[in-house]
Design a binder for these strands. Sequence first.
RNA 1: GGGCCCGUAGCUCAGCGGUAGAGCAGUUGCCUUUUAAGCAAUUGGUCGAAGGUUCGAUUCCUUCCGGGCUCACCA
Length: 505
Amino acid sequence: MQKDSEVEVSENIENINQLMKQRLQKLEEMRASGETAFKSKFARTHLLADVIHAYSEIEPGENTGQEVTVAGRIMAIRRHGKASFMALKDRTASIQLFLSLGTLGEENYKKFLDYDIGDIVGITGTVFKTRRGELSIDVKDFTLLTKSLRPLPEKWHGLKDVETRYRQRYVDLIINPHARQTLLTRVKVVKAIRKWLDNRNFLEVETPMLQAIPGGATARPFITHHEALDIDLYMRIAPELYLKRLIVGDLERVYELNRNFRNEGLSVRHNPEFTMLEVYQAYADYIDMMNLCESLIKYAAEEAVGTLKLTYQEQPVDLSGEWQRLTMIESIEKYGGVKVSFDQSLDELRKIASEHGIRLEEHYGKGRIINEFFEKLVEGKLWQPTFVTDYPTEISPLAKKKPDNPDVTERFELIIIGLEVGTAFSELTDPVDQLTRFEAQVKLHEYGDEEAPKAVDYDYVRALEYGMPPTGGLGIGIDRLVMLLTDNYSIREVISFPHMRPEKG
RNA sequence: GGGCCCGUAGCUCAGCGGUAGAGCAGUUGCCUUUUAAGCAAUUGGUCGAAGGUUCGAUUCCUUCCGGGCUCACCA
């Protein structure tokens, strides 16, 4: 591939359309006249938002005489005879440029107007307001900082083609304010979460992404290979077991906010790599984590979008007030209209399941069946933030059992807009119980459950044998939280570069 | 992986058996306060790819490629 790149480039130049040819021609002319179209550095005196902030109050027709030096991308050109206008955009705002033949002189006026939409320029000029009241910069001096060779999408409709928007996110970001806003909100969410946790003495740590035994969740992992060691490694499906090792190591409060990888289907709410926050707090339980989770998300929402009263896909979502809490069994009765319990027999539960069209695998126990009821009949209906507690032990291999009911665990999931946004539990600290449950999981794998772990993580059990303090652990899916906060239906919208099939071949 | 839908100019879209259109962008004129500027002229397409049916295919059929939604699986 690499050695062919020169050939490919020249082939591309042969095949490109006339719009690019025209721009390449301009580039050639500049080169011939000794000017580079790709300059190194440009010192601005103002960001565009600064200019707007400082001078927005001036009167229409007023010229401040104030000189500013700004830079940005040309987004529109309105040629107008002996005076013309451009729209200039930088990271903070857009402003109008005014070009007049009188000020620039014929040669420079023509030269500037020969620039293209998409070009990146540096400008010096004075701030004034047009008769129509548009704050503008009367250009005295200009320089081309970067020549743009490809035409941008249309100014009015923008770039709509979803495939191009994802594959060429840079274009999406240039042209579609919504794409930019989503990314900026995501940045604020992440920053707010870190700030909240840092302020409470949680330590941000980093644990292995390449793992010999992928644990901490049930999912099919990506497999990779370490050449020097000649062993297969797995991209982590969760950082959980390593973070808890750090709790064993007496760090007491840790978190990690980074990528997990799961080798499963793509969908509007699943990307093969996704960002997860995991928080562990020693001497806390799942109720503490519930409170932590609620405060943290409220804080992040307030910081990122400035309100707790949201709209998602035209439906209101209210994050203010106390979030609903109910057990899984209660939720199935309330939202699914079905009464189930662990007191019923396996056969009874199976019968009710089939009456509701719920398909079950042979090896499912009561807990997993009850969870199926929840997922099929309830989860999608939980639109307002809801903590669902008392998850079955059978599907919670890393959570502490409830002292008064070993069928369920001290665990919750947070559901908003019908989506699982977070999960937390009182971590299982009993090494003997943990080993038993790991072994049961490995059996499931042997029965053909691809998502169950292949091997027991004995080192993790050994760590527990040294003693882990009682600990609450919480996971929050950051992409989904951002979907909620930015009102995006697809997870791909909140990921800068979502996974796509390769473009060619 | 199954089902449904989409792929036409740089972008946004029409056309759907008779050989390709509009708006924006581009190019050339005119225009010194416009702002989706305006007016006039104009360039630009192997109609996603390959087969098939037909006198003739962008249009109908098949396969493939890419994408979207959805179901299954998962967070």
